[in-house]
Design a protein around this nucleic acid. Structure first.
Length: 366
DNA sequence: ATTATTTGACCCAG
DNA sequence: CTGGGTCAAATAAT
């Protein structure tokens, strides 16, 4: 509210365009430098950084726009058998396309053993909080590996070595848990072999008000009611991180929400967290500081670019929610007219569909 | 001083 | 029992 829809879409369009252009430039530069060894690594780094900053700016602007007046894009997803397919969403200027991923990449950072997500969950005694995972790759060039910030403040409360996983998994919860009862948590796990990929799993929503200046005695009333466990929230970002996300940006990001248990119906609606805000977050465990992979990073990136996006984003989403709870509640489904959708698979098979897949933001993040 | 991280112990579901 | 997730005391950072 407060923002003129028409104006907004115009702005969004422009920003999106700018960002896409920057992205293409990035890819182009990347490819070029790979082929041209003469380019000094420093120059390359500088370029990369600049581009990333540019993109970052667009992202930020876009996310600000989106978070201020629009609602997250609601997505209805169908649960197929046990193996939910992954969809690849490619966003190009003004258009969003979704299609099935060729094949479920074996990587996925998931160890050989079963994922811990396919629980039948006979009796979800505790919070059947939805959970969604993002696979984030930190940019090759930048040595930024520190705690990438996603705008929320997290506090680490544990770390565990996971069976079959090479790297330990870090457990984080919202800092304001005690104060505001924010139940949001996340887990950060680094991919086995590609230390540059982080798998961040979010659980629960932030119910906190990220305000809280220490001494300032003006505790904004927190309108939120203590979420009863019985009403798990769909993955939905409702907080608008006001922090400036660092310039860190991943090359590829995936959102994987799992556990959708829309047993009864054939259609679960899922609210996706806004893609626009880069939520990379997470820290690396201190013990494994990854080697500055200048090489692999570059390679990977180029591979990605060839794949199918010459400037398009590649994002995989598999969604599902736990418990048969309400995974819906799409608040605002109608929005940007500028976005075109096409679901190649909409009618494919028995799958169901995505009645209203509204990406408010044509280009969610990088 | 306060607040965050580290880490082994502990809890609980399979 | 085992393994994932959390707690909490000790420790580190501010």
């Amino acid at each position: 509210m407060g923002v003129n829809w028409v104006q907004k879409s115009g702005i969004v369009n422009e920003l999106t365009r700018g960002r896409e252009l920057a992205r293409q430039l990035q890819i182009h530069l990347n490819a070029t430098s790979t082929l041209n060894p003469s380019t000094s690594s420093q120059t390359a780094l500088t370029r990369e950084m600049l581009i990333q900053k540019i993109i970052s700016s667009y992202e930020k602007a876009l996310s600000m726009l989106n978070s201020s007046s629009s609602a997250p894009m609601p997505v209805a997803v169908e649960q197929l058998h046990q193996q939910q397919p992954t969809f690849t969403v490619a966003a190009s200027t003004g258009v969003v396309t979704i299609r099935m991923a060729d094949s479920p990449p074996s990587l996925n950072g998931s160890p050989r053993s079963e994922d811990s997500d396919d629980h039948k969950d006979p009796s979800r005694k505790r919070k059947g909080l939805a959970r969604w995972t993002k696979q984030v790759r930190v940019t090759s060039g930048m040595g930024l590996e520190g705690p990438l910030d996603d705008g929320f403040s997290w506090r680490k409360y544990g770390q565990k070595d996971i069976l079959g996983a090479k790297y330990p998994r870090g457990y984080y919860r919202c800092t304001h848990r005690n104060v505001q009862g924010c139940l949001a948590t996340k887990q950060v796990q680094r991919s086995d072999e590609d230390p540059m990929i982080l798998e961040i799993t979010y659980r629960g929503r932030h119910t906190c008000t990220q305000a809280a200046s220490t001494s300032v005695a003006s505790p904004p009333p927190k309108p939120m009611s203590p979420l009863p466990d019985q009403k798990p929230e769909p993955p939905q970002m409702n907080q608008q991180p006001q922090h400036n996300m660092l310039l860190s940006l991943p090359e590829g990001l995936r959102v994987i929400t799992e556990g959708l248990d829309t047993s009864h119906d054939h259609r679960g609606e899922l609210l996706f967290p806004s893609f626009n805000n880069n939520n990379y977050a997470g820290n690396f465990s201190p013990s494994l500081t990854m080697p500055t992979a200048s090489t692999s990073g570059t390679n990977y990136f180029s591979v990605l670019s060839q794949q199918d996006f010459g400037g398009n984003q590649n994002l995989q989403i598999s969604a599902a929610a736990e418990s048969h709870d309400i995974i819906s509640a799409a608040t605002s489904a109608s929005n940007s007219p500028t976005v075109g959708l096409d679901f190649p698979f909409a009618e494919a098979d028995h799958q169901i569909l995505y009645p209203n897949f509204t990406f408010d933001d044509p280009g969610f993040f990088p």
